[in-house]
Structure formats: structure tokens, C-alpha cells
Computed example of a mutant assay.
Amino acid sequence: MQKNRILCVLSAFGMLLLIQSCAAQSHLIEDKLKTVSTEQLRYYLYYPEDYENTKKDFGLLLFLHGGGESGGELEELKENGPPKMLVEGKQFPFLVLAPQNPHKKKWWNTTAVMQLLDSVVDSNRVDPKRIYLTGLSRGGSASWEMATQYPDKFAAMAVVCGMAPLPYAHWINKKMPIWVFHGANDKVISVEESDKMVAKLRKMNYKVDYTRYENVGHNAWERAYTTDSLYTWFAKQKR
């Protein structure tokens, strides 16, 4: 069973400290302003075949697409990754949450994505210790970001040809298994992004698998997401 739902508005709250100076005065005026940002996210949510016939909790895979599917029709999410495989008949043993970045030329709003994820987890039978993360290209970059910003959220992560936050590698949960995929001939996001990130993580004794495809460009996701062992690997992980 596959469901298409729309989440109307997600709000992210933050505090902004304003410091004003006046030329006629020698002191600073300190004030606080509460800012609110909103994001409209459409998404697909897949349920395993036996979801309705059992009372057990399931794992959930959060998939973040690349720039090519941003800002368009929701149907475009079916062109790559797990959504494409679902259309082709693939069955997963966990829920699959695939939101759409509404902005053609903006990064993922990972705060909004996290709020969507928490909402879906709260309203479905999801085991919070079996939440998995994956993304390709721009979504791969967002996956690295989410792993650094929310280190205690995910049981495992797979990143496909994403830019890596090398200086903040140590922020990632050391207990979380990671699988990285990249094409050696990538002209969009250099394979050096993954090479250096994997090397640094391994130096710090992280659990990292690395699949580096020779003679493959930016479309490494075509191979990565058709690797059946990736999904059995996800299903074995628990935080």
C-alpha cells in the first residue's frame, strides 16, 4: 500500500538576538525578536504490505532526493531512488518517507524535514530506534547535515554522491553505521568529497562502508539504490 499525503505547514522556531548601536550614545541596546519560518512540504509515505495486518512497530527510511526533483511536481520523485523502485514493484520491510524540496535552487530545509519526520513517526507505528536516512546529490548533502545536527536520531545512514561537512565529521554519532556511494568520474560533486570524509571518519574509528564506482559519473544513485544488500543492511540496524 502506498499513500500520498500533504503536510500543509511546518514551522521552525528560533531566536534572533538584535544588537543596535546609536552614534549619539556610548551604550548598546540589547533586545530579542522571536522569528518564525514556515515550509510547505509534500511527500510520499509508503507502508509495508503487512502494516495493516499486524500491531508491531516498523522501521522507517527517510529518503531525500536530488536537485533534479526539487520544485516540480510530486510525481517527479518517482524518477530515482527508493520511490522509483516502489513504482517498479519493490517491497520494503519498513515505511519509506520521501518529502519533496519545494525550492528548485535552495538547499533542503532540514529543520522542516525533521519536523515532518517526527510527525510521521508520532502518528504511525514506527520504532524510533529503527529510523534510517539516505539521500542522493543535494539530498546526500542534506543527509550529512542531518547526521551532524541530529546525531542521536538515526540508526544508519547511506549517502550517495553528496557534499560532505568534513570539519564537522566528529559531530556524527560514532555508533551509527554509514555507507557511502560515489562515482569516481563525478563532474558535479567531486568524488574527493566522499574520499576525504570516509578517510576522516575511518581515522576516528567510525563504522563506514565505501562503494566507489569506477567509470561512473554523478548518476551513482542508479547503481547504489539497486543494490539489494543496501536494504537488508538497513533493516539489520537498530539504534
Rank of each mutant, 00 (worst) to 15 (best):
residue 54 T to E: 11
residue 55 K to M: 10
residue 56 K to H: 11
residue 56 K to W: 04
residue 57 D to S: 14
residue 58 F to Y: 15
residue 58 F to I: 12
residue 58 F to L: 10
residue 59 G to F: 06
residue 60 L to Y: 08
residue 60 L to D: 02
residue 60 L to R: 07
residue 61 L to W: 09
residue 62 L to A: 02
residue 62 L to S: 05
residue 63 F to H: 11
residue 63 F to Q: 01
residue 63 F to C: 08
residue 63 F to V: 03
residue 64 L to C: 04
residue 64 L to D: 01
residue 64 L to K: 01
residue 65 H to F: 04
residue 65 H to T: 05
residue 65 H to E: 00
residue 66 G to V: 00
residue 67 G to M: 07
residue 67 G to D: 08
residue 67 G to V: 04
residue 68 G to S: 12
residue 68 G to F: 04
residue 69 E to V: 08
residue 69 E to A: 14
residue 69 E to F: 08
residue 69 E to N: 05
residue 70 S to C: 15
residue 70 S to V: 04
residue 71 G to T: 07
residue 71 G to V: 07
residue 71 G to C: 07
residue 72 G to W: 01
residue 72 G to L: 04
residue 73 E to N: 14
residue 74 L to E: 01
residue 74 L to M: 10
residue 77 L to W: 02
residue 78 K to H: 05
residue 78 K to T: 09
residue 78 K to Q: 07
residue 80 N to D: 09
residue 81 G to Q: 07
residue 81 G to F: 13
residue 81 G to K: 09
residue 81 G to S: 12
residue 83 P to I: 03
residue 83 P to M: 00
residue 84 K to G: 00
residue 84 K to Y: 11
residue 85 M to S: 13
residue 86 L to A: 15
residue 87 V to Y: 08
residue 87 V to D: 14
residue 87 V to I: 11
residue 87 V to S: 15
residue 87 V to N: 14
residue 89 G to L: 05
residue 89 G to A: 05
residue 89 G to D: 05
residue 90 K to T: 12
residue 90 K to C: 03
residue 91 Q to S: 13
residue 94 F to N: 03
residue 94 F to R: 03
residue 95 L to P: 07
residue 95 L to E: 06
residue 95 L to V: 08
residue 96 V to R: 00
residue 96 V to P: 04
residue 97 L to K: 01
residue 98 A to D: 04
residue 99 P to G: 10
residue 100 Q to C: 04
residue 102 P to R: 04
residue 103 H to T: 10
residue 103 H to F: 13
residue 104 K to R: 15
residue 105 K to H: 14
residue 106 K to I: 09
residue 106 K to E: 14
residue 107 W to M: 14
residue 107 W to N: 15
residue 108 W to N: 05
residue 109 N to E: 06
residue 109 N to D: 15
residue 109 N to Q: 12
residue 109 N to L: 06
residue 110 T to L: 12
residue 110 T to Q: 07
residue 112 A to V: 09
residue 112 A to Q: 04
residue 113 V to K: 00
residue 113 V to D: 00
residue 114 M to G: 03
residue 114 M to Y: 08
residue 114 M to K: 15
residue 114 M to T: 11
residue 114 M to V: 09
residue 114 M to R: 13
residue 116 L to K: 07
residue 116 L to C: 11
residue 116 L to N: 08
residue 116 L to V: 10
residue 117 L to P: 02
residue 117 L to H: 02
residue 117 L to Q: 00
residue 119 S to Y: 13
residue 120 V to H: 01
residue 121 V to P: 02
residue 121 V to H: 03
residue 121 V to Y: 01
residue 121 V to G: 04
residue 121 V to K: 13
